[in-house]
Every structure is written in C-alpha cells, then in structure tokens.
Design a protein around this nucleic acid. Structure first.
Ligand SMILES: [Mn+2]
Ligand SMILES: [Mn+2]
Ligand SMILES: [Zn+2]
Ligand SMILES: [Zn+2]
Lengths: 136, 136
DNA sequence: TCCTTAGTAATAAAAATTATCCATAAGGAA
DNA sequence: TTCCTTATGGATAATTTTTATTACTAAGGA
C-alpha cells in the first residue's frame, strides 16, 4: 500500500483527488497505458477528464513519480518508479513482468558506457518473448 | 552500400522507387523517426506521400527489414536490421549510438529469461545519458 | 511488350495528444 | 476554522499523428 499523498508531496506535487485515483490504478495494474488508465478510472472511480490524465501523466513523469516504458509495436505504458529492474514483455498477451537483477544476472552496462565515453543516467532493458502462461 | 533492391526482395517485397528512397534515408541517418524521414525525402529526393512512408515503415518492420526503437520521451526511431547491438541514447542531442556487444560486455539476459520461464525472442537495451560530444 | 496485381498519391477520416480558459479545490496563512 | 492565493481540473477546441479509402500507376513476371 503506497501512501500516494506522501509520494506526491515528496515530489512537490499537490495531492489532488484525481492524481491519487490515477496512481491507484497504475499501482493496481503495475504497468498500464494512458487509454487504459482512463477506462479503468472511468469504470471504477468517478469520471476524470482524459486531458487531466494526460496532463498528470506527463507531469508526474517529469517530477520523477512515474516512468515511461516505451514498447515496440504498442503505446507506452507507465509505472510508479521503484528500484531498478528490467521488463519481460509478452508479445502474446502484452503482460509486462518486472524482473529485479541480482548479482547473478547483473547487466554490465556500466562497462559498455565507459568504453564509449558515455555518461550513463538511465538503463532500459526490455526482453520480448512469450510468458509462462502463454506458452501453454 | 546496401543493395536495397536485394534487401527488399529477400523479404518478399517489391523494390519500388519509394521504398528504396526511404531505405536510403534511414541508412544515411542510422536511426531516424518517421517525420524526419519525410522531411529528408522531400528535401533531397522527390516528394513522397507521408502515407506512403507510414505504410512502408509498418510493412518493412513487419517483414523484418526494419526494426523499431522506442525511446523514452520521444517518437520511435527506425533502423535497418543488423547484428544485435544495444543503443546509447543521448538525452541532450537525441543521437542514437550503436554499441555491439563483445564477450567482455555481454548481457546475460538468457539467464534472466530462463529463471522466469520466459521464452526470449528479442532484446532491447537502451542506455540513456549524455554522449561524448554533449559532455564538452 | 503486355498483363496482372500490388503500390502510390491524394485526401479524408480517425485516433492521439496538447492547448485554452473558466470554475474549483488544495494547502498555507491568519 | 476560515480565508486567500494559486495551482489544478473539466470541457472542449485545436493540433498532431496515424490509418483508411480510392482511383491511378508502376513493378515484375509471362
Ligand atoms: Mn516495471
Ligand atoms: Mn542501432
Ligand atoms: Zn503472455
Ligand atoms: Zn549528445
């Protein structure tokens, strides 16, 4: 259970009813596209303006509350920022699975960046394939 | 110098004048967004319909001639498919730099997928940061 | 060279995103 | 708690991006 009001305030954003509704839906689905947020908010909660959702997704992404997950062949999904992890994206059902990296499965991107004089700020690793469920 | 006509035929696509113009521009820039392809084609070559560019980008991507590179905060870029590599994306100037992976900098994503019962098909690694040039 | 069929241009339509502007609510001050 | 200031939301228009339609045209095989 995330304290949405606190999360927003920590990022210098007012804790409005609408923002908390949006965050609640994103948290519920983990990774979700804008149109889907709109549908879910409209269905479950009161009806927010689509423009409000757009404005807040953009704003919360800028302020570091959310992060965009651009995906090949579909619209970007968004999630609440958390510890670094990579994504397993099922090309059958669209599910996005979080995968934390441990020492065993670390990705040595630091070295890659270093050998290219590239100042690394953010890593984005998407693995596309078929999820456990869709294989059977 | 890529033989565009051959490349297209290898993927069961007719080698039209327009497709070769598009491929030539993509090859020239390496990684490029649709609108930019349109501008460049219109400027340098004859003027192709924007709809033609869209249709062909989609088609050539489906047929495996091109690959989409979705990027946080901007529109997807496209490139001609080549050996697997990752991307260093400069958040200052937008440049996309190819980085081949050698044994030293390999990314052990196989293991990640395996421990998740995930059937891996395609990897997409984007490293965001500041390029050599923009640091000075 | 001729034919068949897929591809293109032009344009309309649809979908996605952003801007505008007035009403409203959040949150700090008193 | 009430009041004030200002950021935010709703409604909607405008813009941008992407897709569909259709008549004409060119690619490539016979
Ligand atoms: Mn995630
Ligand atoms: Mn590349
Ligand atoms: Zn699946
Ligand atoms: Zn740069």
């Amino acid at each position: 259970m995330i304290d949405y009001a606190l999360l927003l305030k920590e990022h210098q954003l007012k804790a409005t009813f609408q923002r908390m509704q949006i965050l609640e839906v994103i948290e519920k689905y983990g990774h979700i596209a804008i149109e889907a947020i709109y549908e879910e908010v409209s269905r479950i909660h009161s009806s927010l303006s689509l423009a409000t959702i757009y404005k807040n997704i953009v704003l919360m992404t800028q302020k570091g509350v959310l992060t965009e997950i651009p995906i090949i062949g579909e619209k970007s999904k968004y999630e609440i920022i958390k510890d670094e992890h990579i994504h397993l994206i099922c090309t059958e059902c669209g599910t996005v699975i979080d995968k934390m990296l441990d020492d065993d499965t670390a990705i040595d991107t630091e070295k890659v960046a270093k050998t290219s004089s590239f100042s690394l700020e953010h890593r984005q690793v998407n693995l596309y394939g078929t999820c456990d469920h869709c294989q059977s």
